[in-house]
């Protein structure tokens, strides 16, 4: 799903919810996943003027989950460690987006190259 404007955020969250419900994820984990997704989509819009968001159902052993990939061709992040620190923001936000999203999901991966873009991948396991 491509995310190019602010009005894409709510439909995207609804899609994530559909998939999460399909895997049988409980309401608390659903809410955590969708909130994390919302933060990451917002980052993409704010810093990279949009990008692509991918929703996948994944499984490992008996565990099912949802994997979300957010890829943008924005300015990239020079210091990922700093960007993951609570309260740090290069914009005017609260600086909770990345570190907060990380806390809400089971697995979190971020790859970024300055000038090329950023890709964030998160997984939330059904029971994780």
């Amino acid at each position: 799903m491509s995310i190019l404007k602010e009005q894409d955020v709510v439909p995207f969250r609804n899609r994530v919810k559909e998939y999460a419900v399909k895997t049988g994820m409980g309401i608390v984990n659903q809410t955590k996943l969708i909130t994390a997704a919302s933060e990451l989509v917002r980052n993409m819009l704010l810093y990279a003027k949009g990008g692509i968001a991918l929703i996948e159902v994944v499984s490992r052993g008996r565990e099912n989950g949802i994997r979300l990939t957010f890829a943008d061709k924005g300015p990239g992040i020079a210091d990922i460690k700093l960007a993951l620190k609570d309260g740090y923001s290069s914009g005017k936000s609260l600086g909770l987006g990345l570190p907060g999203a990380k806390r809400l999901v089971s697995e979190f991966d971020i790859q970024s190259q300055v000038g090329k873009g950023t890709t964030v991948t998160i997984i939330k396991w059904k029971n994780g």
Binding site: I27, V28, T31, K32, L96, G100, R103, L104
Partner: peptide
């Protein structure tokens, strides 16, 4: 506020 929202807010750090 829904309980799931409250849990998420605190974990988010808000």
């Amino acid at each position: 506020m829904q309980p799931a929202v409250a849990i998420t807010l605190i974990e988010l750090g808000l």
